[in-house]
Computed example of a mutant assay.
Amino acid sequence: MFNLKNTICWSNNDLNIKENQSILKETILQGNLVIFPTETVYGIGANGLNPEASKRIYQAKGRPSDNPLILHIADRNDLYKYVRYVSEDAEKLMDAFWPGPLTMVFEKNELVPKETSGGLETVAIRFPKDKTAQQVIKLAGVPIAAPSANISGKPSSTKFEHVLEDFNGRVDIIIDGGPSEIGLESTVIDMTGDIPTILRPGYVTKKMVEKVLKYTVQDVSGTKPTGQVKSPGMKYTHYKPKGEVLLIRGSIEKMAAYVCEQKIKLEGHKIAVICESEYQELFNVNVVPLGSKDNQLQMAHNLFSSLRDMDKESVEYIYIHYLNKDELGYALMNRLEKAAGYQILDL
Rank of each mutant, 00 (worst) to 15 (best):
L4K: 15
L4Q: 11
T7M: 09
C9H: 11
S11E: 10
S11R: 05
N12S: 11
I17H: 03
T27P: 05
I28N: 02
G31V: 06
N32F: 10
N32H: 14
I35Y: 00
P37V: 09
T38I: 07
Y42R: 03
I44N: 04
N47V: 11
K55M: 12
R56P: 00
I57L: 09
P64S: 15
S65I: 15
S65A: 13
N67V: 12
I70S: 07
H72C: 07
K81L: 14
K81E: 13
Y85W: 08
V86R: 01
M94I: 15
D95T: 13
A96F: 07
W98T: 12
P99M: 13
L102N: 10
F106Y: 15
E107C: 11
V112R: 10
K114V: 12
E115W: 03
T116C: 14
G119S: 12
G119R: 12
P128A: 09
K129S: 14
D130H: 15
D130V: 03
A133K: 04
L139P: 01
L139T: 14
N150D: 02
K154N: 04
P155K: 02
S157D: 02
K159Q: 13
K159Y: 07
E161N: 10
L164H: 05
E165M: 09
D166W: 04
V171A: 08
D172I: 05
I182H: 00
S186G: 04
V188T: 04
I195R: 03
T197V: 13
L199H: 07
P201V: 06
K206H: 00
K206A: 08
V209L: 12
E210T: 06
V212K: 02
Y215T: 06
T216N: 06
D219L: 03
K224S: 14
T226R: 12
S231N: 03
G233N: 03
M234K: 08
Y239F: 09
K240Y: 00
K242Q: 12
V245I: 13
I252K: 10
I252F: 06
M255F: 08
Y258T: 13
C260T: 13
L266N: 12
E267F: 07
H269V: 06
H269P: 00
A272T: 05
E276D: 13
E276K: 11
E278H: 06
Q280A: 10
E281N: 11
F283K: 08
S292M: 12
N295F: 08
L297C: 03
L297I: 08
L303C: 03
F304D: 02
K312S: 10
E313D: 11
V315N: 05
E316N: 08
E316C: 07
E316K: 13
I320G: 01
K325R: 09
G329S: 04
A340D: 11
G341N: 11
Y342Q: 11
Q343D: 15
I344V: 15
